[in-house]
Design a binder for these strands. Sequence first.
DNA 1: GACTCTCTGTACCGATCGGTACAATGTCTC
DNA 2: GAGACATTGTACCGATCGGTACAGAGAGTC
Lengths: 188, 188
Amino acid sequence: MLTRGVERGEVLRALGEVFRAHGYEGASLTLITEATGLGKGSLYHLFPGGKEQMAAEVLAEIDGWFELHIFAPLRIADDPTRAVAAMIAGVDQYFHSGDRVCLVGMVALGSARDSFSEAVDGYFARWQTALASLLRRSGLTNSQAQRRAEDALLTIQGALVLARARSDAKIFRRALSDLTARLLAPPA
Amino acid sequence: MLTRGVERGEVLRALGEVFRAHGYEGASLTLITEATGLGKGSLYHLFPGGKEQMAAEVLAEIDGWFELHIFAPLRIADDPTRAVAAMIAGVDQYFHSGDRVCLVGMVALGSARDSFSEAVDGYFARWQTALASLLRRSGLTNSQAQRRAEDALLTIQGALVLARARSDAKIFRRALSDLTARLLAPPA
DNA sequence: GACTCTCTGTACCGATCGGTACAATGTCTC
DNA sequence: GAGACATTGTACCGATCGGTACAGAGAGTC
């Protein structure tokens, strides 16, 4: 099928939402067939490796999205103010202002982490490295840049958790706004 | 049995570790019987409401621990520096410097949140209120105190996620240290 | 020792789990 | 239209899920 690539992307999107909503262990094949509109036959034809392959490909797709829209721009940017603002805007968009949960963070907390530790670690590692490289170019020392980048990732993850726990998306928005200021503050 | 209360505490501790390690949906009765050393008979005798009651009581016990060791001290403290340090030390101890995951945050992210939304929301709400009341006494305005307290909770949660994702407990320690400084900084 | 009453191990329940087998249906090529 | 091959729905698999039933062990009272 020529359209297979496109369809696979659609399926992965639907799979991502199921995993986000129910977690890796909670996403049963019944839920998956409902969300994707695909029977087991199609599902196992597309993903012979079963649920684990599905999750791995979903994580890879998320990684690809961030690589394209977040990481790469950070690496090539020359204007820190603009680059940070773009990153924050991208994050806000991706997480639907706090309504959407971070699947990577979710997997990290659960027992499925061991199966996907490389993907999980790599995602955050590349994000931190990309952001730190921008901050270094803006005048921070290497270690200052690393610390601030780490702070940024952790703030985003924490804001997602707290916003969801308290059912208040404004928490996420406030956190992103504070974070922007902290990232762009002059070196201490 | 006179020892029943004590034993129940032991059981709840074991239950907590199972839920932490496998999540609510991932914690099967098989894992639970292994972790607690209790057969299904005893389990359902102790918790007629089944898994949901177990989780609810575990959350309540966690809440009780924080109420005693974190929230209450914050409310009655008069020395902000000392109170913040004590809170941070308590948090560091409870989460084993980042090795232990926050069950409340974990539940918040998963689909079990709907069943425990009050417990989850209440836990964070009371923490934030207690911390904000201390910060207000230290000279901050009401809204400044609320914002800083929110920042503290979110930082702790995010640090737990990131530390686990990257398998690096030092991230948690660094975050707590930075957070202490931020909480005690003079009003902007 | 007989009577309670709390507690527990075991067998069992229907439902659902992730996964497989396979026949039937499409769709494309020639 | 014949043949090849990708795609799908459905029936089915053993294992495990959360939960129930219940007989009996254990401990306390008289």
